[in-house]
């Protein structure tokens, strides 16, 4: 039952993904030199989030695998962010 048809990613696609990731890293380092106040952290996190999504979707194959994995990953992320949010109910108002 297990041998469902596998999606085989090509070498080229992995290479393109890698270049994208390196470019994003470059942008992330470069943008640090621009003074934006608290926005700097936000931008850094957005870029990191983009990189993470690329890794999840292509390298970790979420884009091609069983959709269940992607749903679970999203769920875990939501739970983590909610825990973070609820924790800051304490710290932002203390």
């Amino acid at each position: 039952m297990s041998q469902e048809k596998q999606h085989i990613s090509s070498y080229t696609s992995h290479f393109v993904v890698l270049i994208t990731l390196i470019i994003l890293t470059g942008i992330s380092v470069a943008v640090t030199r621009v003074e934006m106040g608290p926005l700097n952290t936000l931008v850094a996190m957005i870029i990191a989030g983009a990189k993470a999504s690329v890794v999840l979707a292509w390298f970790m194959h979420l884009k091609f695998d069983n959709k269940l994995f992607a749903i679970f990953t999203a769920l875990v992320l939501v739970i983590f962010l909610l825990v973070l949010y609820v924790t800051f109910f304490d710290y932002s108002y203390r």
């Binding site: 609820v86 109910f89 304490d90 932002s92 108002y93 203390r94």
Partner: peptide, 9 residues
Amino acid sequence: MSGRALYAF
């Protein structure tokens, strides 16, 4: 804890 957190929890 902060008051806000108390209500939320």
